[in-house]
């Protein structure tokens, strides 16, 4: 029997640990943040810096804009991260939650292609072409001036903020069905990987994920051509723009307000820039 005693002892110790610790956590020194993977890097970095100078613990978790808005509205998280506006549907569902949006930066979504396609000469796509590709009407790169290769059309999970913004620009409908899709991905990293691994893919990603394997093309519509450059974005002319925002239930107070102010402040904005986004305060003409 003595051999079973240690089990009981360990159980007691563990329970002790978890309950003693809990009283500390209840004092409100913990902020939970959930949501968009686009905003995630900014907030994670900011949170690290914030924690270094404060005894507040900030837990950051991914999940997508939908999860962020939902969690904030339901009180499952103190702050939701969103890379899109709160949709009318969500406004209706959470009308009792008094959601407040705090803009912390701006992001542009680019239309990305695999580097092989980019190098073979596809540097520009018109809005109509992108629409046709996603609708499955254009299936080969040669139809848009590229090599004779089938297009691997990469979509995002429908609740992702990036998809909302992109689809609203291309189709005028944030939840457009796209029968041309071949692969569906979740986080920005996952989509970036898939585009890079394929040699004939098209996809949608934030500017921050552009690299030598994943290239952005120029977009053309009735208003002209828009190169995926920081300059175009900062001038506010780039057409697929969105606000990166933190969402709270009611006006934030205390530590939560302090953190949101920190992200909006100089140090937070530095991390916005470092992650490839545009800081708040830059004048833009939103679509």
């Amino acid at each position: 029997m003595a051999r079973f005693k240690w089990v009981g002892l360990a159980l007691l110790l563990l329970m002790g640990w978890s309950f003693v610790g809990d009283s500390a956590a209840e004092t409100g020194l913990r902020i939970q943040i959930v949501g968009s993977t686009t905003v995630l890097p900014v907030v994670s970095h900011a949170a690290q810096q914030f924690m270094a100078s404060s005894n507040t613990r900030i837990l950051v978790n991914a999940g997508g804009s939908g999860v962020g808005i939902f969690s904030a509205a339901q009180g499952r998280a103190d702050i939701g991260m969103a890379s899109r506006e709160i949709s009318s549907n969500e406004k209706k569902r959470f009308k009792n939650s008094d959601l407040k949006t705090h803009s912390v930066g701006l992001d542009a979504v680019a239309c990305m292609v695999s580097s092989e396609i980019y190098q073979s000469g596809v540097r520009l796509l018109t809005r109509a072409q992108i629409a046709k590709i996603y609708m499955g009407k254009i299936t080969n790169w040669k139809e848009v001036g590229g090599p004779d290769k089938k297009i691997v059309v990469i979509d995002k999970e429908h609740h992702r903020g990036t998809r909302h913004v992109f689809m609203r620009y291309v189709f005028g409908n944030a939840t457009q069905r796209t029968p041309g899709t071949i692969l569906v991905t979740g986080s920005n990293n996952e989509e970036q990987t898939k585009i890079a691994q394929s040699d004939s893919a098209i996809g949608m990603l934030s500017f921050a994920w552009i690299n030598e394997d994943v290239r952005a093309v120029i977009i053309q519509d009735q208003n002209g051509k828009f190169a995926p450059t920081l300059k175009a974005v900062q001038s506010g002319r780039y057409p697929i723009m969105r606000e990166l925002s933190l969402i709270t239930r009611g006006e934030p107070k205390g530590k939560i307000k302090a953190f949101i102010d920190f992200v909006k402040g100089p140090e937070g904005q530095k991390s916005v820039v470092e992650n490839g986004y545009i800081p708040v305060g830059v004048e833009t003409s939103k679509p």
Partner: peptide
């Protein structure tokens, strides 16, 4: 040889988002 979806993979992808909706 095309991409597809299985029940568990669908659950894994959408569970967090759909919760309570």
């Amino acid at each position: 040889f095309v991409s597809g979806q299985t029940i568990p993979s669908k659950l894994g992808r959408e569970a967090a988002e759909a919760l309570g909706s």
